[in-house]
């Protein structure tokens, strides 16, 4: 479910920017780091920490949009790729310098330990991840499909020039999308940060999984990205349980290559059409 949040933010940023945001994975890590730092400073419990982390990363998303995405809209997508890769390296190195290399743990959202529901024992944190994830996904769906703001965001991603022609302030909506993407990344980083520790070098891995989810689900499709992310989560869980982590990752990469070669439009079709 946390992958779904990562992928959701990734696809929002992708649609708004018209190019891959390679810094997205590092925003996730930054979210985990923010949770660690704010948690240490304030000692706030998890649920109160959440809005602070979301806010901090929303701002980081705005900075990313202003620095590496908006100035490059008129250039080929490769320019944005390079700019966001540079940004990702800056975040990663910045974190390495400020935090020690030692991984940290983010505070839990609902306390640790397990609860028993209907005879099944479940960890508190996984439950929290699923609840928060599902809530945010529904909220994003409502925003995109049922509000004027969401309609305009979709208009900007479908056709930037047309959107500008009908009077939508495109730049503002790109920044807004990146802020939302950043906030989602931050929350995902916070949630993952308790289970899997926070280390500066994880960014590329998060980014790669979101990228894969979006490519498998259909480029630019929000439901496709969610399905892709859930698919990756299940795939990793079951395959690594069966054959171990390394083989699971290898199988995932091979599966991606196979999907790209055999069905380049994604498993569920590509809604935005060709983007050369």
């Amino acid at each position: 479910m946390a992958y779904a949040l990562v992928a959701l933010g990734f696809v929002l940023a992708l649609n708004a920017a018209g190019a891959v945001n390679f810094a997205h994975g590092d925003l996730v890590v930054l979210g985990g780091a923010a949770a660690v730092v704010i948690g240490l400073w304030t000692g706030l419990p998890g649920p109160l920490l959440l809005p602070f982390v979301a806010l901090a990363l929303g701002i980081a998303g705005i900075v990313a949009a202003r620095v590496a995405i908006l100035p490059l809209v008129a250039r080929p997508p490769e320019a944005t790729f390079v700019a966001t890769i540079a940004l990702a390296a800056m975040i990663e190195q910045g974190l390495t310098v400020t935090m020690d290399a030692a991984p940290r743990t983010a505070p839990p959202l609902l306390g640790t330990g397990a609860v028993e529901i209907a005879g099944i024992t479940l960890g508190r944190q996984p439950i929290a991840i699923v609840v928060v994830g599902a809530t945010l996904v529904v909220a994003m769906w409502f925003l995109l499909e049922r509000t004027q703001v969401g309609r305009r965001m979709r208009a900007v991603s479908a056709d930037r020039h047309m959107a500008r022609a009908v009077g939508i302030p495109v730049a503002r909506y790109v920044v807004l999308s990146l802020a939302l993407a950043g906030a989602l990344a931050g929350i995902a980083g916070f949630l993952l940060g308790h289970q899997f520790l926070v280390a500066p070098t994880q960014g590329a891995g998060h980014m790669l999984k979101a990228y894969i989810a979006v490519a498998i689900g259909g480029w630019g499709s929000v439901p496709g990205a969610l399905l892709g992310a859930l698919g990756i989560g299940l795939f990793e869980t079951f395959v690594s349980a069966a054959v171990g982590d390394a083989w699971a990752s290898a199988a995932l990469y091979l599966a991606v290559l196979a999907v790209l070669v055999l069905r380049p439009q994604g498993l569920f079709g590509e809604p935005v059409g060709r983007r050369a």
Binding site: E78, L208, A215, Y253, V256, L257, L260
Partner: peptide
């Protein structure tokens, strides 16, 4: 097969190849 892919898919395919090599 992968050179026919458009920019973002080409980047992903080469990234997957690189990840496989690193894993090995």
């Amino acid at each position: 097969p992968i050179l026919r892919l458009q920019s973002h898919y080409f980047a992903l395919a080469t990234l997957a190849l690189a990840s496989l090599i690193h894993l090995a």
